[in-house]
Simulated assay, not measured.
Amino acid sequence: MPDTPHRERQAGPDWAALDALPATASGARIWAALGEGGLTARAYRGGAVGAGADIDGLGGLLTAVDARFSVAATLSVSVQLATALPVLAAGAAPAARSALERALAGRATIALAATDVTAGTDLTALRTQVRIEDDALEVTGGKNWITNATTAGHHLVLARHRPGRHFTHFTWVLVPADAPGVEVTAADSALFADSGVGHITFDGVRVGRDHVLGRVGFGLPLFARHIGTERLAGAQWAVALCRRTLRDTHRHLTARAHGDGTLWDLDSVRQRFALCLLRLRELQALVAESGDSVVAAHDATAAATLKAAAGATVSEVLGGCGQLWGAAGFTTGGIQEVRAQAALFGIGGGANEVVLDVLADAAGTLLAEPALPDVLR
């Protein structure tokens, strides 16, 4: 049997719906199983999407999915849980209510189409437009590298209804995937095929006026309200991925013969592993400290800190573990393949450079002298 990483699954009847799937299942199949098993609602307080994220429930779901399936498939689930469904829940019209109900039940996936063809993560530069009429909306433009694009029943499209970069010039529109004028092309990415990633074009797509999500002009504030939860979810997932990788690597090192002992007996190996473990512990502590601030207070700086820390931690931990696996890490599905996929933690949802800018802007506040506890006064 090849010496490659394996999945250590969480035990318990709660995850039977996931355990029935093969490890190669796509994000869409996993989403269906979560919905059919009544598990999706666990990510939200009281099971209601509009009530906000349940920190433990969201983290538990992502850990369970990561333990069983690929990085790409887990990405498909994460984007929907943390951002797509909360944005969709802002719609009060029957079309939005129906789409949300179907998504929660696992009968449909939802694509969050924010990243524009020409703008990347600079959302105020996006060119996708929505023309608002008395009884209809017309959407024209394109979105690139959209998770769940090829499987979605609906696309949540961030579009501009007015020229310029002001934050009130953007609106979310719910667009059925089968509407005339919608064209989806799968992205050329073997690494992320399981996420349904693709490119979408909208050629004069017309939908009812009731397909606005939230209020006209509130697209960016609505997105900002939920991107923090996506960054928290990413950090929770990063903890699960790093912990699983370190467990597999520790098992590999303690079993792999070297001289009269194993690789684990080498001081250089143990120290390199310990540094990776230290990074994991640091990220765990940051997630525990920041979760409430992100979910309850919508603290953008805390969310940016989590995103930056997750990207750096995943890169260091998986890079270190990849070195410790040696040649065995290049097997199909091995650490080097996972490492390539995990590069998304430093890019997707806001590149490291973007979130580090947010952190730098808050330097004065973060470095202010903290108040002394009463016991020390």
Score class of each variant (00 low, 15 high):
Pro2Lys: 15
Gly12Ser: 09
Leu18Gln: 04
Pro22His: 14
Pro22Thr: 13
Ser26Arg: 12
Arg29Asn: 13
Gly37Lys: 13
Gly38Ala: 10
Thr40Trp: 05
Gly50Asn: 11
Ile55Gln: 09
Leu58Thr: 11
Gly59Met: 14
Ala64Tyr: 03
Asp66His: 14
Ser70Leu: 11
Ala72Thr: 13
Ala73Thr: 07
Leu75Glu: 12
Val77Glu: 04
Leu81Ser: 11
Ala84Ser: 15
Ala89Trp: 01
Ala89Thr: 11
Gly91Pro: 09
Pro94Tyr: 01
Arg97Ser: 08
Ala99His: 01
Leu104Tyr: 00
Arg107Lys: 15
Ala108Pro: 01
Thr118Ile: 13
Leu123Gly: 09
Thr128Leu: 04
Arg131Lys: 13
Glu138Thr: 09
Val139Leu: 02
Gly142Val: 10
Trp145His: 14
Thr147Ile: 15
Asn148Ala: 13
Ala152Tyr: 00
Ala152Ser: 14
His154Met: 07
Leu158Thr: 07
Leu158Glu: 03
Arg160His: 03
Phe167His: 15
Phe167Tyr: 11
Phe167Thr: 15
Asp178Arg: 12
Val182Phe: 01
Val184Pro: 06
Thr185Ile: 13
Ala186His: 06
Ala187Lys: 12
Ser189Glu: 07
Leu191Phe: 02
Val197Cys: 11
Gly198Pro: 05
Ile200Met: 05
Ile200Gln: 04
Ile200Cys: 08
Val205Asp: 06
Arg206Val: 06
Arg215Asn: 05
Arg215Asp: 06
Gly217Tyr: 00
Leu220Ser: 06
Leu220Ile: 09
Phe223Gly: 10
His226Pro: 01
Gly228Trp: 00
Gly228His: 05
Thr229His: 01
Ala235Glu: 00
Ala235Arg: 06
Leu241His: 07
Arg244Thr: 07
Ala257Asp: 06
Asp260Ala: 15
Thr262Tyr: 01
Leu266Ile: 12
Gln271Val: 09
Leu277Ile: 00
Val287Tyr: 00
Ala288Thr: 10
Ala297Pro: 01
Ala297Gln: 11
Ala297Val: 05
His298Glu: 10
Leu306Lys: 07
Ala309Met: 10
Ala309Asp: 05
Ala310Leu: 04
Thr313Trp: 03
Glu316Tyr: 04
Glu316Ile: 12
Gly320Ile: 11
Gln323Trp: 02
Gly326Ala: 12
Thr331Lys: 14
Gly334Glu: 00
Gln341Met: 11
Leu344Gly: 03
Leu344His: 05
Gly348His: 06
Gly349Ser: 08
Val354Asn: 06
Val355Asp: 06
Leu356Ile: 08
Val358Trp: 02
Leu359Trp: 00
Ala360Val: 09
Ala360Thr: 09
Gly364His: 02
Leu366Ala: 13
Leu366Lys: 14
Glu369Tyr: 02
Pro373Ile: 00
Pro373Lys: 05
